[in-house]
Design a binder for these strands. Sequence first.
DNA 1: CTTAGGG
DNA 2: CCCTAAG
Length: 695
Amino acid sequence: MVLQNRLDYGFNGYQVPPIPRGTRSARRRRAISKKVDDRQMCAFDLLATVAGKLLLEGESSPSSSNSLTGTIVKGSIKKERQDEDNPSKVEPCGRGSCDRSSFVSELVSQTPVLHHSSKEFSHVHNDDCSGVASVITSDCSEKVGSAEKLVSGKGKIQLGSFASKVEVASSGYQESCDCTLEDENKNKKQIKIEPPKTGNASNNTKADMCSSDDPGVRNRKPPTPVSLDNSMKLPLCTDHIPSGSFPACRDDVKLVIRDDDENSSGCTQPSTATKAFRPPPRIGKRRIRKLLASKYWKVTPKLKDEEHFNADSETRSVYHNRKIGYKRKRSLTDYPIKKRIFYDRSSVSNSDGGISSEGISSSPRKGLSCDASGSGATIHGASGTSACVAGQHTPFQSRDSPVKVRITSFKVPELFIEMPETATVGSLKRSVMEAVTAILGGGLRVGVLLQGKKIRDENKTLLQTGISRDNKLDALGFSLEPNPSQAVPPLCHEDHTFLLACDTPQPLTRYPPAPSVVHNVVEQSTADASPDPPLTNASNFVDSDHDSAPSPPDMSIDKSPTDSRALVAVPAMNVEALSVVPMRKSKRSEAVQRRIRRPFSVSEVEALVQAVEKLGTGRWRDVKLRAFDNAKHRTYVDLKDKWKTLVHTARISPQQRRGEPVPQELLDRVLAAHAYWSQQQAKQQLKQQLETCLL
DNA sequence: CTTAGGG
DNA sequence: CCCTAAG
């Protein structure tokens, strides 16, 4: 029978009888994946929250002081060329003499920036000229896209060198990591982010940050809510930043933390604050896992190969997450309170979004001198976007004069960190670090906003979009959005080995792109975005997570050359989100986002078909292990689903099929295998029925 | 955790 | 892809 089938189906033969299920014990052992440390929860929670907020970033309502969307008004060309070319005018940072400084203060005084913003703003801009990070020059004819890249590039520098150390300074001295917050929570705290002392500091992994045993975190005392003001400034460019250390008042990222117990009671159910402080561990872990799966890698992909996060556990977490998903839906109250970081409600309700640019100004040419000679500082007070807006108008602007954009800082939305009083300062640091990292490290991209409107068309020139034109009312803004390509758990290269024994170190081999795949995404993903291997050799080969993530074929196809490579519906939500304030919070921060769609490539289909031919349907876990063990983003449920659709696809006419066409040959095999295994299954059942009857 | 199947 | 029910 078996042989016959082999002949009939023309493939290497079905494996009959199916190999006995691997002993559960073995699986179990692997299934006992690492429990996520409590302390990670904060980061995860935050990540989720941040994710929610970032998703909503964009054309946020201008009516919130916490608005994440910054606006700037480009400066006008005020000086003649000669002036501009005069290097002496280019004073990056003057003492009190710095024109800009006074200019900015003036701005500040005029700008009805709401709460903390103003304070922080003045701080940064008056005390800290170096807060002005970078000058970006681009020509009027530059396209918006290129401008974004410029900004993005600068930002990357910053983000890339982003320190992985958080210092908590209270009353001027730096506490040891060992004292508890209890000891310190009376003081105003400042958290600054420092560059790593050692070269490898930036390689800190999340595990590092969370692994130390922190008794405080386990403590059941009520949490000490710590609010991180939304005044964290992120100098955009580190060019001037001394590598060794961060002078306290220079380019540091600063958070002003205020202790606010009332806030906490307001934000957390007082009754549960103590009791429910430690939620049912199970739920907590689940939640963590969920977050972990969805966002964690984005921040610290390197962890992947760590013990905690071996592929297996990661994969499993995905499965597990499914359940979490629906469980959470049923009861949102089981939200772990142990240690969470969340946004201030006001912040959340008022606006959502990413990190906004603030204190940006643009001026023609070497406008650094920025002698704003009283020209109108446009105030967007009502808008409350809390971004410094300055506009100057000059009739002299010539068409080809470069548009200079200076972004002094990006602001991070207000954060709250809630921790038990007994948490250590060290753990607080980690929390903040994680929070910041979550926001910055996840891969950001830059959005350009003009008068609050997002400029989608990257191909427009600055001139066309009006950025180059002088209009006081023109507000140019930049926003940081979650990078779509990063929205997917990134993948570390270490993890890149292909699993199947038969596969050697092939990852580096480049296969020619599958014909139907458009790879315009590749430009942004790095080297490895390897296309599908030829079908012929695709034995068990399956794109690793890394490979397939950045370039979902159909994504790139129908996209306009705008910024819409987004896999996440970031742009779409931008405006609407704000008008739908109520829903948002629960929807965004609580709900887990749907996984991004990642169409199966032909090679994946090939691998799937081959595995199913061998193993049969109904053994999806084995199929997964066999052919997709390396593709972390494919769960066995996915495989099962794919098979389902494959069967369906094979049955419908080619005209009705959508997406990347699957070779007919493969579809034939699908049908054949499906038929065979269905038959096999039927037989099996018959046999069982007979047996039961006989018994 | 896995499967199977509906949505 | 998600969600659930059922082993």
